[in-house]
């Protein structure tokens, strides 16, 4: 098996439980694989465990058992600092509510992950400008998040997630708070970066119409994987 045939993201018997009066398994024995250059979309109704799964994939939370491999490296046993380093290098994260740093401009928000990753300021600024240009926000580069619309903020968040050329970008309901026109624009961005930079994306959504853009559609129900479909978008 060549390197490119290996999954870039893989979970093995992944479990996560919460205590809600009794133990509730939000993620129950989940096994998935995402190949390099794919757009994988995880769909399912509310409470099916999609967001929990994505949090685990991004190292934002810890599973109770199982393993997560990113580029064949297990992230479950990493300590917080190793996890931070892994996130810095391998994972871009797009939140549903954008989560930009409010007192930084759009340009500075995109620049920050690169500065943290020891990239020179000049290089970081150039790449941040390039990414903002790619998402069509060059004129708004020096605006703060509160001066941007929801769609613009989400595009800044996407640009930020791509800053360090991560192995995989994880997006939690990236279109959940957007109108249909902006939603299309954001999806178009994902598809474009997937094609031009062969960027791997894992998106979660309960908007099933987005599955047409995916190479792999994973359906979840009650914390378990219901179906996995591989298709050509």
């Amino acid at each position: 098996m060549s390197l490119s045939d290996r999954p870039i993201l893989e979970t093995i018997n992944l479990n996560k439980a919460f205590y809600l009066g009794e133990a509730v398994y939000a993620v129950n024995n989940v096994n998935i694989q995402v190949m390099p250059g794919e757009i994988a979309i995880i769909v399912g109704p509310s409470g099916s465990g999609k967001s929990t799964l994505l949090s685990l994939l991004g190292g934002l939370d810890r599973p109770i058992s199982g393993d997560i491999l990113i580029n064949d490296q297990s992230i479950v046993k990493l300590n917080e600092d190793q996890l931070a380093l892994m996130r810095r290098k391998n994972i871009g994260y797009v939140f549903q509510f954008f989560n930009l740093i409010p007192h930084l401009s759009a340009l500075e928000n995109v620049e920050l992950p690169m500065s943290i990753a020891s990239m020179s300021r000049k290089e970081a600024r150039e790449r941040a400008r390039y990414l903002l240009d790619e998402v069509g926000l060059t004129p708004r580069a020096h605006h703060r998040p509160d001066q941007l619309s929801g769609g613009e903020q989400q595009r800044v968040a996407i640009a930020r997630s791509l800053a360090n050329r991560p192995a995989v970008v994880l997006a939690d309901e990236p279109t959940g708070n957007l109108d249909s026109k902006t939603r299309d624009m954001v999806i178009d961005l994902f598809c474009r970066f997937n094609k031009t930079e062969r960027q791997t994306f894992v998106l979660i959504t309960h908007d099933t119409s987005l599955t047409q853009y995916a190479h792999r559609v994973i359906t979840m129900k009650d914390g378990r994987i219901n179906t996995i479909e591989v298709q050509n978008p």
């Binding site: 934002l60 917080e80 600092d81 931070a84 810095r88 989560n99 740093i101 992950p113 943290i116 990753a117």
Partner: peptide, 16 residues
């Protein structure tokens, strides 16, 4: 809290 969460999610280490 949200701002710190974002910082952590983009790879800012605890020491930083």
């Amino acid at each position: 809290r949200r701002e710190l969460a974002v910082m952590k999610s983009i790879g800012v280490s605890n020491a930083q």
